[in-house]
Amino acid sequence: MRGGKFIANVLPPVLVLIVVTAAAEGIIRALAVPMFLLPRPSTVLQYMAQHPADLLASLGTTAQAALIGFFASAVIGMILAISLSASSVTRRAFYPYAVFFQTVPIVAIAPLLMIWCGPGLAAVAVSALVVSIFPVIANTLAGLLSTDPALEDLFRLHGAGRWARLWKLKLPSATPHIVTGLRIAAGLAVIGTVVGEFLVGLMGSGEGLGVRIVSAKKLGRTDELFAAVLIASLLGLAMFAAVNLAGRLLLRHWHASEQD
């Protein structure tokens, strides 16, 4: 049952990947597109096979920053959402500033982060944090505000204080919302990291995937560039999948459908 479901879920996207890659290979060969415009998938794979150590080192650097940024936005985002949920006055006063994280152009403020934190891990992780925190705040807040009023009554009736209501009722019942927010944040954290690394790369230091993308572009090495982009995308996908799995485990008892 489980295995069958897994195959049914995994097989279609893998097939799409193979077909699209093969088609791209065929079209690029047929049209004789020059390498500096668009490398063939086989060239990209070849590059990856020839430089595994460099690419893994870059992946490690980027993954570290992305994970730090992601966990920071999970923790800080949830704490901010809890504070915002405390009263409608604080919500009205501060929520517009939370929206700021959604609208701030990261490319514009990233140089500032470099100035404040130095061109390194800290600046890159903060960039990931800034890009990924809003969905955590917004979804957690929505979850905290949609607690079943009957259950709130029940808790009040039995004399539950503020903390008991938060820990035993509001946060657990917001779990589906929180998981949704974290899923979005996982992908965004990688994007924020790579954008942060672009700027580090422009300053000529570091070895993250974003740095590699910038330097490969300068040298016209499109195979390296595509390899780095591909690995960054896979990192985002992996973080998304990990959050998804954690969410399923957390919510496994909620729905009859996930019991089998």
């Binding site: 029940l154 009736l157 039995h158 539950a160 035993k168 779990t175 008892h253």
Partner: peptide, 29 residues
């Protein structure tokens, strides 16, 4: 207040708690 009990139209159980811990909730609080 704790010697009151209130039952709603729907069961309103906590989906993340098993039956035993749902029933024990008022005493836990």
């Amino acid at each position: 207040r704790r010697r009151f009990a209130y039952v709603f139209q729907d069961a309103h159980l906590l989906p993340w708690r098993n039956v035993l811990r749902n029933v024990a909730l008022p005493l836990e609080l």
